[in-house]
Amino acid sequence: MSIAAELSRALELFEFPFMQRALIGGVFTGLTGGLLGSFTILRQLSFFSDALGHSALLGISFAFLLGLNPSAIILPFAVIFALVVMFLLERTHLWTDALLNIIYSSSLAVALIVLSFVGQYKGGINHLLFGDILAIRNADLILSAVLFCLCTAFIGLTLRTQMLLTINEPMAIARGVPVATYRTIFIVLLALLVGVSIKAIGVLLVSAFIVIPACAARLLSRTFTHHIVASAGLGAISAILGILLSALFNLPSGPSIVVMQLAIFCLAIVVPTAQRLAL
């Protein structure tokens, strides 16, 4: 079969509602992940988002054990867990990466043990680890859209404050910025993003949506504002291309998006270097 025919077949798939929902959901997650991701990497919180992703499995496993709906549990669990981790990071005198390592590996271990008691999920762990973007429902889409609007409003309306806070915290405090409040709101939004995205992307890949487009955008940006816009844009573009790739070659959607993010990141490394060499 020719490439044109393959492409046509893949595009026909987007006539199905489940593919349309996957595409819209992917774009919302890509935009929100890129938006929050730009600040996450600049504030060196990438590992924090990874730990949140892994911890979500713990919340899901307890929900299964207690016979509760995981979707109802995951958001409050992610927020409370994030706030507890932030409290521990501020109160203990341990290295951030070491403490986060303890948290994410132990929460993963406890989650797997808890899941082993839940017969229904024995062997079904792949679903939780890698998600299924094609299984997104309308309610999930609404949640993603609301979260995107919340994050855009928060970052947009406090952009100048966020910039000063990121470049030098004491200078922001000296200007009267309530740093703890801003930090808490940001962490809560990050936790909500992880919680909302788990179903589509899974616990292992969720941090890729936050970190990879933001790093690619950093390589392509000279100004702070361009970095934020580029990060959100690359997040959305990689989601569209990833879902298309998945439809073309019948590949799992979440990993396909992450592969596209990686491809864009590699391009972001190569293009500026090639431009410099050409000059």
Binding site: L42, Q44, R160, I167, S221, R222, T223, F224, H226
Partner: peptide
């Protein structure tokens, strides 16, 4: 952090 992308004009504007 010198990896933060911010121009002089952006910083002074803050």
């Amino acid at each position: 952090d010198r990896r933060i992308p911010m121009t002089v004009a952006e910083f002074v504007g803050l």
